[in-house]
Design a protein around this nucleic acid. Structure first.
Lengths: 208, 208
DNA sequence: GTCTATAGGCTGATAGAC
DNA sequence: GTCTATCAGCCTATAGAC
């Protein structure tokens, strides 16, 4: 018999799943607690209010992801000068690996991040959790591309983050345009296309 | 004295501006009619309901954008074989030019599209208005890259659309990471970085 | 920590006078 | 086409019993 997860976790999991499908405003607390199978009032008891619940969903997995990314970057840097491609893989591969876990949590999380990342309302939250590690990767890219202006490198890195985030958020528009040849949910295939595209993008930047 | 725009247009403009800042669900009809300076009931009179109003906001500018893009592509193709970079410019440049107009409408529109593009709820609407032209550009890219698998080209095109859309949606996260060196609202600078990055990305795709 | 009940407010949509 | 008034439903958040 599966051990009963505590109420807090039940609510967080349900919120994560629902917020990954729809906006913050489009999901009600009643819906979350309903899906979690707990009473309405418990959401307010465990997480002060709706906004704090959303932020806790973001916070719950952020540090684990950041840590995995930094570990991977450090491992590469210990072996010598890191290439742009290696740095990108260190940043993106953990995201894919977590999403590929049989449990659905990370997949929901990645979709949720995709929408939070472009909603001004959550910009402070996103920055608080992800900017420190993003800055470390930006520095690594500056080092790998000493002859490219920093602004150009940073812009390219932001482009990369945006594509990564949306590529793994199951954007289904590609299915119609490919007449069904491509499946949006095939994350390994997306990753395989993504890396050479991004590496090529950095290679295409003008030098100083 | 400025000629008074009709109520329909007032409502569409106000809705466009508000929906560009916040989600469909986060904006109320009262807020829209309030900003437009018209009575609440008029929104339902002119546009059956909230959903239809949102779709009309998307529809209003879509065909003009598509037409400009196709005209530009055709002009290039008449001069000989189009390069990947030329095709990308034909697709993206009209978007930038509209956004640079002094009137704010297109800027709001571009932000609105950025969020609608990744909300499953609006996928059918986005596909209805934009897939025909997107397919034309995909075909042009296939021709320009005959030795690259079509799936890879299409994926790269989708990456490009995603970056374009988010790059011009004023994502302000780059401002903190650049310590203020980069301004998110500088669309010309974004465009200047974007084109070589995307061209390089296509160049980095594996050949058959 | 959990449950019930409810307060208090805002929502989209409409009916009907002008 | 416009304006006023209102309905019925849903929302978040909380108070208080257990």
């Amino acid at each position: 018999m599966a051990r009963k997860r505590d109420t807090r976790t039940l609510i967080l999991d349900a919120a994560e799943a629902l917020f990954s499908e729809r906006n913050f405003e489009a999901v009600s607390i009643r819906e979350i607690t309903g899906k979690a199978g707990v009473q309405l009032g418990l959401a307010s008891y465990h997480f002060k209010n709706k906004q704090a619940l959303f932020e806790e969903v973001i916070a719950r997995r952020a540090e684990l992801l950041n840590q995995r990314r930094r570990d991977r970057l450090r491992a590469i840097q210990l072996k010598g000068d890191a290439t742009v491609e290696q740095i990108l893989v260190a940043f993106i591969r953990p995201y894919v690996e977590f999403c590929l876990e049989p449990e659905q949590g990370w997949r929901h999380y990645s979709r949720l991040i995709a929408q939070a990342a472009q909603d001004d309302q959550w910009l402070p939250t996103i920055e608080r959790h992800f900017n420190t590690t993003a800055a470390i990767f930006a520095d690594a890219l500056y080092e790998a591309l000493p002859d490219t202006p920093r602004d150009a490198v940073l812009r390219a890195f932001m482009f990369s983050i945006q594509i990564m985030v949306s590529a793994f958020a199951n954007n289904r528009r590609i299915e119609a345009l490919s007449h069904g040849t491509i499946t949006a949910g095939d994350l390994e295939a997306s990753f395989t296309s993504l890396i050479p595209f991004l590496s090529g993008g950095f290679a295409g930047l003008p030098s100083r």
